[in-house]
Simulated scan of single mutants.
Amino acid sequence: MITCVVRYTIDPAKIDAFERFAAAWMELVDRHGGTHHGYFLPGEGASDEALALFSFPSLAEYEIYRQGFDVDPEFVAADRIRDESGCVLRHERTFMRPLLPT
């Protein structure tokens, strides 16, 4: 299993748009073979950082999921929320291997 950790720098004035973007992607990840662990939004402290965590059984399955990004209308529509609203200023992805309780 691999877990993708996405760190976002967001526009705090556009948190509603970011939440719409996040809701769309949570559904898409789950529908396309992954498990979304949620988005973590600013609470206290920095108001412009958010995280997303989702897992796929393997990096190969994650790559299959990624193949639809530019062609699947639902993926394109989800990204349009981000692009048209400007809610995401920057993001970076890191892949991690979870160590889970037995």
Rank of each mutant, 00 (worst) to 15 (best):
Y62R: 15
G38N: 10
P73W: 06
L100G: 01
T102G: 12
H91N: 12
F75S: 02
T9F: 08
Y39W: 11
Y62I: 06
I10Q: 01
P101C: 09
G45D: 10
P98T: 05
T94C: 09
R97I: 13
A46L: 13
F69N: 14
K14G: 07
P98W: 08
A17M: 03
F18P: 00
S58M: 04
M26Y: 04
I15Y: 01
H91Y: 15
A22L: 08
E92N: 12
L59H: 12
F69G: 15
A52F: 02
V76F: 04
M96S: 13
V6Y: 00
A13Q: 12
L53P: 00
A22R: 02
K14R: 15
R31G: 05
D11C: 08
G33A: 05
V29Y: 02
G86C: 08
P73Q: 05
G43Y: 01
E84V: 09
P42E: 04
F56R: 04
F95K: 10
D79Q: 08
P42L: 03
Y39D: 08
F18G: 00
G43R: 09
R97G: 07
E19H: 09
P12C: 03
M1Q: 02
T3N: 13
Y65T: 06
F54P: 02
A52Q: 03
D72P: 08
F56K: 04
E84F: 08
Y39H: 14
E74H: 09
C4S: 13
L89R: 13
D48V: 01
F54W: 03
R93V: 09
E44K: 12
F69W: 14
E19A: 06
M26N: 09
V71E: 12
D83R: 10
V76G: 02
C87P: 04
H32S: 14
G34E: 01
E61T: 11
P42F: 00
L59N: 12
H32C: 07
E49Q: 14
I64Y: 10
R66K: 11
A77Q: 11
E61V: 00
I81N: 09
R82I: 05
F21D: 02
E49D: 05
V88A: 05
F56L: 07
W25I: 05
A22P: 02
R82L: 09
D11K: 10
F75K: 02
R20Q: 11
D16L: 11
S55C: 03
A23G: 10
I15N: 03
A50I: 02
S58A: 06
F75R: 00
V6S: 01
F21R: 02
T35Q: 14
S85G: 00
L28Y: 01
Y65Q: 04
V29N: 00
L59I: 14
D11Y: 06
G34A: 05
G68Q: 04
M1F: 07
E84Q: 11
R93G: 09
T9K: 07
A13M: 07
E44S: 13
Y39T: 10
R93F: 12
I15V: 14
L41A: 06
L59K: 13
A13L: 13
F75C: 00
